[in-house]
Amino acid sequence: MTVLSLIACLSLLAWLWLTFGQGGFWRTDLRLPPRGAAADGPRPSVAIVVPARDEAEVLPESLPSLLAQRYAGEARVILVDDGSTDGTGELARRLGAQSGAALPLTVTSPGEPPAGWTGKLWALRHGVELAGDVEYLLLTDADIAHAPDSLTELVAAAEAEGGYDLVSQMARLSVRTRWEQLIVPAFVYFFAQLYPFRWSNKPGARTAAAAGGCTLVRREALARVGGVAAIRGAVIDDVNLARLVKGGGGRTWLGLADRVDSVRPYPELAQLWRMVSRSAYAQLRHNVFLLLGTVLGLALVYLVPPVLLLTGLILAEPRVAAPAFAAWALMAATYRPMLAYYGRPAREALLLPFTAGLYLLMTVDSAVQHWRGRGAAWKGRTYPAPDQQQNELPVP
C-alpha cells in the first residue's frame, strides 16, 4: 500500500470506530427522561440561580421566561449581577416588577471574585447560598429562554424512577445567520463526540458531562461533594460539575432540549471564534502534547477524507479515493442528525471538513492566547491556567 492509501485507510478506520464504537454520539434522540409516578404529587422546592454579567441585551427575552414558569410548588428566581456595567441588575429589577410574573425575583451582587474563583462560579456560589434549604437548584445562564413548563419537566425528570441528582439539557443555540448555521451544529456535534451522552448517562461510566446553560441539581448532592467551591477555578464549569456529582455517587443525565433556547446572537465569525477559543485549550488541560494530538487527530479524521478523495481522483488511484470517499460518507451520515435537529438541509453535511478546519484553528488560537498570558478571556476578565489546582478536574 502507498503512503496515501494507508493514511486514507487510517481515516476510514477512525470513522468506523467513531460511528459504531463511540457511544452513538451522533444520535439526537435523547430527550428528558419520562415522568415518574410522583410527577403529579407535591412538587419539591426549587431556586433558579442566574449568574449575569453585562447581559442587558438578552435579558428582556430570557428573564421573563423564568419568571413566567408554571410550577406547582415553591420556586423563585435569583439573579446574581456579576459586576455588570450595562445596567443588568437594574433592568432585571424592572422586569421582575412587571405584572404577570408567576415567580418572585431576587436581584443580588456578590462583588468581585476572590483569587482562585471564576466570576461565574463566584456568582453561582452566592446565589446557591442565598437559595437556602431548597431541594433543587436550577442553574441557568442569562441568555437562556425556557418554555413555561420547563421547570416542571426538569423536576419531573429528576424525580423519575430511580431519581437523578443532576439533569441537564443542552439548549438549542441560534442558527439565524450563515456563520451560526455553519459553526453551531458542529459545536454540539463535537461536544457529543467528546462526551457521548449515553456514556455520560450510564451509572458507573467514567464519562460525565452537563450543559451549563440548563442544569438542575439536587442541593443535597451538590453540598455532599463540596458545593460550588469544589470547582471554583474551573473554566469548563458544566463538565466539571457533572464529574463532581457523578464522582460523588450521584446519577446524572444529559440530553438535547426542545424548548430551552439560547437567545444570544452570534452574527459574526469573530464572536463564534471567541466562544470556542476561550476554553478550547483549557479543555486540553493546557497540555501541549494533547494540543498536538488534537490537531493531528482533527486533520486525520476531518481533513484527510476530502483531500485524499480529490487526490485519488486526480491520480486515478482507487486505493486512495475509495477509503477516503467511505470516510467522508460516514462523516456526513453521522452529522446529518444534528443538522436535522437544527433544521438545516442534509447537503450542509459536506461542509463539515471546512468547519472542522476552523475549529482546528480556533483550538490553536486558544493555545496561542494562553502562551501570550491572556488565558481564558471573557467579558473583561482573564483566567490564567490553573497551576495544578485541585478544583480543576481532569477531562475524560
Rank of each mutant, 00 (worst) to 15 (best):
S84K: 05
G89W: 09
P60R: 05
D86F: 00
E57Q: 12
P64T: 03
T85E: 09
V77C: 07
L59F: 04
D81E: 06
R76G: 15
D86Y: 02
A68C: 09
T88E: 00
L66G: 00
P64Y: 04
R76E: 13
R70I: 12
S62A: 15
V58M: 14
E90L: 01
L66Q: 00
E57P: 00
L67T: 06
V58H: 03
I78V: 15
G89S: 04
A75F: 11
G87R: 03
R76M: 08
E74Q: 03
A68W: 00
P60I: 08
L66E: 00
Q69R: 05
E61Y: 06
V80L: 10
T85P: 00
E57T: 13
E90V: 00
V80S: 08
L67S: 04
T88L: 09
A68R: 15
D81K: 06
I78N: 10
G87F: 05
E57F: 12
L59R: 01
P60M: 09
P64H: 07
P64C: 04
S62Q: 07
A72D: 14
D86I: 02
L59M: 08
L63M: 07
G87N: 05
T88S: 08
A68D: 12
L91G: 01
S84W: 03
R70T: 15
L67K: 03
L91M: 14
G83F: 05
P64M: 04
R76N: 07
D81A: 07
S62L: 05
Y71C: 14
R76I: 10
L63N: 05
E74W: 02
E90A: 15
L67V: 10
Q69F: 09
P64F: 04
L91H: 05
G73P: 14
G83D: 13
D82H: 12
V80W: 13
S62E: 06
G87H: 03
G73F: 08
L66D: 01
L63S: 09
L79D: 06
A75W: 14
A72Y: 06
I78F: 12
E74P: 01
I78A: 11
V80G: 09
A75S: 13
G83I: 12
D81L: 11
D86L: 01
Q69D: 11
A75P: 15
V77S: 11
E74R: 05
P60C: 03
A75Y: 15
V58I: 15
A92Y: 07
R76Q: 12
R70P: 07
R70H: 14
L67F: 10
L91A: 02
L79N: 05
Y71E: 14
R70D: 15
E90I: 00
